[in-house]
Nucleic acid binder design. Structure first.
Lengths: 193, 193
DNA sequence: CCCATATCTTGCCATTGACTAGATCGAGCC
DNA sequence: GGCTCGATCTAGTCAATGGCAAGATATGGG
């Protein structure tokens, strides 16, 4: 698409990342091969090493990009419930990113970019939980935050692993999660978000 | 351990599976290598192929074993909440199994043993949800089931990926989940399990 | 005792990840 | 224009892996 093949690719890093996302979305992270990505990009087998040190370096970059997008997606949600919906929507929209993000054995844990992006996402997530009392009651708040996180994360994870295929049955996952969260967090007039 | 080395190992299949569990628990499923497992068991590099066709065959066996253990663990729980606790306890006790079970891209989806074991586990899980009305109201029940499943699964997944390390802070995960589930599913005297 | 079968070994090949050395491009500078 | 210098990419190599084929060895049934 970038027309001619010159010695310098021009945007190899991005090309490799998008190719990686394709492979991951289609066959999972285990199917990612640096040489295959190089072939798809039309470069030599050693070219990726210059942008990402090694295989884990590439997956780390995928995770970092994912956390950056994730933070943006979460930041746009007004209240706690919509943040959960955004959580699920992100997983459904960026399955490849999501999978890699939450598989720590795939990336370098000490990568600065990854840590920074994850910190941003964590903050975006936490600010939705702690929005109730200025400096909440501690224990209970923390538990409530973990509960909300678990609910959204579990739904997203089960969705991506195909375990909700029959339960959803052609239904919109976002909408399903919205009503699900409603029934759980505000059963009969209790404290909602 | 098994004293002498004869031509026939005696229990190679099990030896390979337990070695695989060690590797997965320590470094994740991606680090599993058939040749490495063979070395650990003291057999030649091609021996594993006779018990498990290939790498995905071995991981499929791990998943199948996991689902079998999982079904047993769930069956022992009296009510819905304890079933959730059992869910989390299983993940904490069998992290390697759990990881492989919920990564469909690692195993053969059409394996009969896997399907049978998973069906048992699914049934053990569902019977805890549908235990309320004989043939419940359909939509809401399904949603409630998905909600409970999502909560337990999300907690378990976040726990294994290390995302709850600081939130738990040396606390017992089981106990934390128990009180968490209590505060979510029965906030102020509503319908519990 | 003998044979059929399951189990394990040896040998082999293609692919991959990772490393090294060298080629090519591009930008700044004189 | 011609130069150097660094970034980018190529080519070549090596060890490790997965998977296959052919053969050796043990085990149990007849």
């Amino acid at each position: 698409m970038t027309s001619e093949r010159t010695y310098h690719h021009g945007d190899l890093r991005r090309a490799l990342l998008t190719a990686a996302l394709d492979v991951i979305a289609a066959e999972g992270p285990a199917a990612v091969s640096l040489r295959d990505l190089a072939r798809r990009a039309g470069v030599s087998h050693a070219a990726p090493a210059h942008h990402f040190k090694d295989r884990s370096g590439l997956l780390t970059a995928v995770a970092a990009d994912g956390y950056a997008l994730f933070a943006d997606a979460l930041a746009g949600a007004p209240d706690l419930r919509e943040r959960g919906v955004a959580y699920v929507r992100f997983a459904a929209t960026h399955p490849a990113h999501f999978q890699v993000m939450f598989q720590p054995d795939l990336h370098r844990a000490d990568d600065p970019d990854l840590l920074a992006a994850r910190a941003r996402a964590t903050e975006a997530l936490r600010s939705g939980v702690a929005g109730l009392p200025p400096a909440g009651r501690g224990e209970d708040d923390r538990l409530a935050g973990v509960a909300a996180w678990s609910l959204a994360h579990g739904f997203a994870t089960l969705l991506l692993s195909g375990n909700l295929a029959d339960a959803m049955a052609g239904r919109d996952p976002e909408e399903a999660f919205r009503s699900l969260a409603a029934s759980v967090f505000a059963p009969e007039g209790g404290r909602a978000d």
